[in-house]
Design a binder for these strands. Structure first.
Length: 217
DNA sequence: AAAACGGGGGC
DNA sequence: GCCCCAGTTTT
């Protein structure tokens, strides 16, 4: 299937209201601060956007560098990021990461995938998202929406996130890699929902084969 | 009362 | 691969 990506992306931008920078990056102020991007990405795990943003703002107003973070106790961090889900685990993770950054990476967030993956609490998703948002390095971040939507639309046919990452790199121009996650997350939340999606108000239904969708609105 | 949710670690 | 983790919203 030959897909008009420029058009699809621009329609999604308008439909979702997402401009170019996702909410996590905006927390970082004028330029994306890799440390803030990484830490808010950790906080965002299983947590809604609004909660992630307020939790990140509270945390960063108390500490926004690895060394400042290490002056806080784990319960203090947990208290700052509450009510983000898994807040106790995340507080430990944030402190561990901060310590490692200070010891092994000169207090900075590494910009190589392999280095990011060695950090505790950082998996493929978090690492790729950080590479894109913090450093502008083209990388595709596959979450449930980025996996579900292209498959439902019939653009690709994959069964796991890693396959999806490869398949999307094949069909999607590199200039859209960083943005696709933000767009599809927003799109998947309000229109292309996991069950009974709002196909009647979908702006890109022209390019969707609705594979696997039995019920829709 | 379940299921779902911007996952990842330990085994 | 499977199981665990463990807060909140949505259905």
């Amino acid at each position: 299937m030959k897909l008009p990506w420029k058009q699809i992306i621009s329609v999604l931008r308008r439909a979702t209201g997402a401009t170019e920078v996702p909410s996590v990056t905006k927390i970082a102020g004028d330029g994306p601060d890799p440390y803030r991007v990484l830490i808010s990405t950790i906080i965002s795990l299983r947590t809604r956007d609004e909660v992630t943003i307020s939790a990140s703002e509270r945390l960063f107003s108390a500490a926004d560098t690895p060394s400042a973070m290490l002056r806080l106790s784990s319960p203090a961090v947990a208290d700052l990021i509450y009510p983000a889900g898994f807040y106790r685990t995340k507080a430990d993770t944030i402190l561990k990461i901060s310590g490692i950054l200070l010891e092994a990476h000169d207090g900075k967030v590494p910009s190589r995938l392999t280095d990011l993956l060695t950090l505790p609490g950082v998996g493929r998703k978090t690492a790729n998202l950080t590479l894109g948002l913090a450093f502008g390095i083209p990388s595709i971040c596959v979450d449930t929406h980025v996996h579900r939507i292209p498959n439902r639309a019939g653009w690709i046919s994959t069964s796991n996130p890693e396959q999806t990452e490869d398949a999307l790199m094949q069909i999607l121009p590199e200039e859209f890699w960083i943005e696709i996650n933000t767009l599809l997350v927003a799109f998947g939340k309000d229109t292309c929902t996991p069950v009974s999606p709002w196909c009647s108000r979908c702006p890109i239904s022209n390019w969707c084969s609705r594979i696997g969708v039995s019920r829709h609105r």
